[in-house]
Structures are given as structure tokens and as C-alpha cells.
Amino acid sequence: MLKVNNIEVIYSDVILVLRGISLEVKEDQIVAILGANGAGKTTTLKAISGLLNAEEGAVTRGSIEMDGRRIDKLSAETIVRELGIVQVLEGRRLFQHLTVEENLVIGATARGHRGTMIDQDLERVYHYFPPLKQLRKRVSGYLSGGEQQMLVIGRGLMSRPSLLLLDEPSLGLAPLLVQEIFRVINQINEESGIPILLVEQNARLALEVADYAYVMETGRVVLNGPSEQLTENEDIKEFYLGLTQLGERKSYRDVKHYKRRKRWLG
């Protein structure tokens, strides 16, 4: 359904950040994008959701298509309202002074939904994230990090997305909570059939829930494949899953790997 064809993204007319990224999300899939800080993962999501246009960024080459329609020139508003592609921004961004329920409701009204549709969607969010129900009258800025993460994903769901873009949902959360969030992401995908494009640093969990994954490095895709295949990949094992078998490699490869590792972790 979503096809990104060899796009190049430039910020402020001079800073080349994406150097030819291609990726695809098929119906019902969870697709993960892995990569170190600054690799261009967030930029990729923003190119898809149209948010780049607002911040001096532009797709200068290639194309992005949703169900065959070119979307790389559309405004963020059109992409959400007409195509249902919704990006949940990095860092648990919420409307701090609004209550939990207002934060959720606005996800629906901003897409033009009204009335009973909103009530149904609220129930769905409370079904996936039961703690939010008790908190619904609370000012959201005072929620804990985990509750906030539930809230922002919930807000994404309120738009009835046809594709959900999640940017680092595990950022800064305790390991148990991260597992819980990933369990729900998987559940959302399976029960509601919403395809998800997931940006993550936590490669182990991301590969567990994803059907397919891409690894990015300085604006390029350096590896891609079905998750099981990537999980078995030696480089991934070593750099992301921490399964290095020390002392087994010869010096040349070591040096090469060391360099790449530095770049990946850089």
C-alpha cells in the first residue's frame, strides 16, 4: 500500500539527509526501520506524513505513493484527513494542558470524525490501554512517561488510521513497559488490521513484532529483509542484539566491523 521510491530529502536547500531511500509497507504488515541516531529515520517518517514541508525540508527526488496515489507533494493535513496516514511523533508529544480525553478526542475531530464514531473509538483505545480510562479527566502533562506513550499511540488510533507511523515508542521507558507497549502494538496490528511503520532503536523487540525491517545508516538503507532473516544476520546480532562472539574473528574483519559499529552507534 505504501511505497517509498528512492527519495532524497534536503533540509534548508543544502543539507542532504536522505540519499535514496526505498521501502514498502504492505497491507496488515508491521515494518520496522532501525538505525543509529541521526540516520534519518524520523526524516523518512516526516517525508511520508508531509510534515517536512513545514520545516524547511523537501523531498527533492523520488516519489512516495499510497495505494498508487502520489503523496509527496500533499500537505500534512491532506495526508491525514484524506489518506489516513498518521504519524505519532517522537518523544511522546502531547497537548500537555489538555486532559487525557481531550487529547484523544482531538485525534478524531481533527480527521473530521463526529459523534458516536468518537465514542466507539474511545472505547477501542481504552480496550488497548485500560489505564487511560481511569485517567481520562486528568491533565495529560502530569501523566507518567508510560501513560503518555499509551496516550499518544491512542491518539493516533483515534484518527482511524489506514497506516500508523510510530517514531521510537520505546524511548526512555523502563524495559517492562517497553515490552507492554510492543505487545499492544502487535495486538493493534492483529486485531484492527492497521499496518504500522515503526522506527526503533530497540532492535530486538522491533524485530520480534515486525514482519519486515530496514536498517538505515546516514541516509541510506544498508540492509533489509524479513525480520527472521535479519535476526539471524551477523551484523545485526553483533551491533543491535549484543550477541558478539568475542575472539572468533580475524583482524581485518574486526577493524571493518569496528568502524561500522562506530558509525552505527555514532
Partner: peptide, 11 residues
């Protein structure tokens, strides 16, 4: 509160 966030949800 947040223009970018507002834009990201379709406002």
C-alpha cells in the same frame, strides 16, 4: 500548545 503536533494529527 504545539503547532507541529497539531499539524501531525490533521489540524
Amino acid at each position: 500548545e504545539d503547532h507541529e503536533l497539531a499539524r501531525s494529527i490533521g489540524i
